[in-house]
Amino acid sequence: MITKPSFFIQLGILTKRLILRVLRRPLAELPNIFISAFFLFVYDGALGGVFGGTASGTPFDFANGNFVNFILPVSIVSASLSGAASGIYLVEDIESGVFKRYQSMPISRWVIILAPMIVGAIRVLLQASLIMLIGKIIGADPAVGTVGFLIVLSLAFIWGMGFAGYSVAAGVKSGSSQGAQAATFLFFPAIFLAPTFVPREALKGWLETAAAYNPTTYVIESMRSVMVEGWVIDVLFRGYLAAGIFAAITLFFAVISARKATEKA
């Protein structure tokens, strides 16, 4: 007996398929986790001595004595960029012809686009959680308490969805895995044209201007506020707003690109 499956059942089937694919290629997941953890250890090791507890009472005491709290958001944001793999999943399906098979079946074309984005978001959640666990072990202690970890995680999720949308749009538009890979180049300006190592007030000249226009700045500052300072609602709000707007814009472009890709020639 055949009855047309609902949108959500279709989405569940295709999402499960991609999760199986991720689980069966675990080595592909390791570099991003490793890089994020590496950032955390290296930055804490290199800069923790200067800006950590010994900076107490000096102008460099922006971490309130705990540099792990200050630098953890950078690692989380870098982990959340793993959402950028979503475009690769889709492009692999286009290149291998799996995409065409689904197109020839009476299933929603949106499901084909949404499934890799959901898997991207799940990866972001898992990777960010793992980095936070490592951060906790080496001394992270949010100023607002444990709920601070959940706030950071939620920001990472929205930010990761934004990158997933960007990646899908770039992947579908380029139509090749190289194109989708090349699009991850955005990682560098996103991370480093921001108050990565010091507060924004310490940035000077062109970098200060670039950081002001980089949405990553507001996401990192928002995460830092709950980790280092406590409840600073306007900063927190700006972080969610920046991540939300970024996600909305990239999702919009993903939808437009996907619509063009699924349209009949």
């Binding site: 398929r17 199986l20 694919r21 399906d93 290149e95 291998s96 995409f99 065409k100």
Partner: peptide
């Protein structure tokens, strides 16, 4: 050129 998911 219809694809098959090789990893499944």
């Amino acid at each position: 050129d219809t694809g098959i998911d090789n990893i499944l």
